[in-house]
């Protein structure tokens, strides 16, 4: 199985959580813990529609991104493509985000067999002091992300029983 774990974000502010997660997961030796799968841990800077390029040729893609939930900052929300692509989609080059790219990939039939989005809830942008330091991802969140991946991967990568 070819497995992509992709941190989505940018270098600054709360949007950097996706990137920090990849660094943290590499440090925790996640790659080794997922053998024998071929695992690629990567970071993407606001990829827009080019998210589909990152996922091309992969059997499984797990996308880690910061999300504003308004419930419980720090909580990890596992989301399916259907769940994430059901809202109002913004379709311009400036606004084309993860939800739009996944909906486009789904329409094209170009998504990996399994796509899971792990959204790490952050505070609403208006609650953050502008220009403040980027919050560091805590070991608790990293632990939960690693657990979600370690629990999910064997399930979705398990050989499917033969029909009949």
């Amino acid at each position: 199985m070819r497995l992509l774990i992709l941190g989505i974000g940018s270098p600054f502010g709360q949007d950097s959580l996706g990137w920090q997660a990849i660094d943290g997961l590499i440090e925790r030796g996640l790659e080794q813990r997922l053998t024998p799968h071929e695992v690629l841990l990567e970071k993407a800077d606001r990829p827009g529609a080019l998210l589909l390029d990152y996922m091309r040729g992969m059997d499984v893609a797990i996308l880690i991104d910061a999300l504003v939930g308004g419930v419980d900052p720090g909580r990890v929300h596992p989301l399916t493509v259907e769940e994430i692509a059901q809202g109002d989609l913004a379709l311009s080059g400036h606004d084309l985000g993860v939800a739009e790219a996944l909906a486009l990939g789904d329409a094209l039939g170009d998504l990996p067999e399994q796509v899971l989005v792990l959204g790490v809830e952050v505070e609403a942008p208006e609650d953050c002091a502008p220009g403040g330091p980027s919050p560091r991802i805590g070991s608790q969140i990293l632990g939960e992300l690693a657990n979600q991946i370690l629990v999910t991967v064997p399930t979705i990568c398990a050989p499917q029983p033969a029909p009949g």
């Binding site: 989609l89 909906a103 486009l104 329409a107 094209l108 039939g109």
Partner: peptide
């Protein structure tokens, strides 16, 4: 939009 278009014009 392009998502609708993608189904007919992939």
């Amino acid at each position: 939009n392009v998502i609708e278009m993608a189904k007919t014009y992939p």
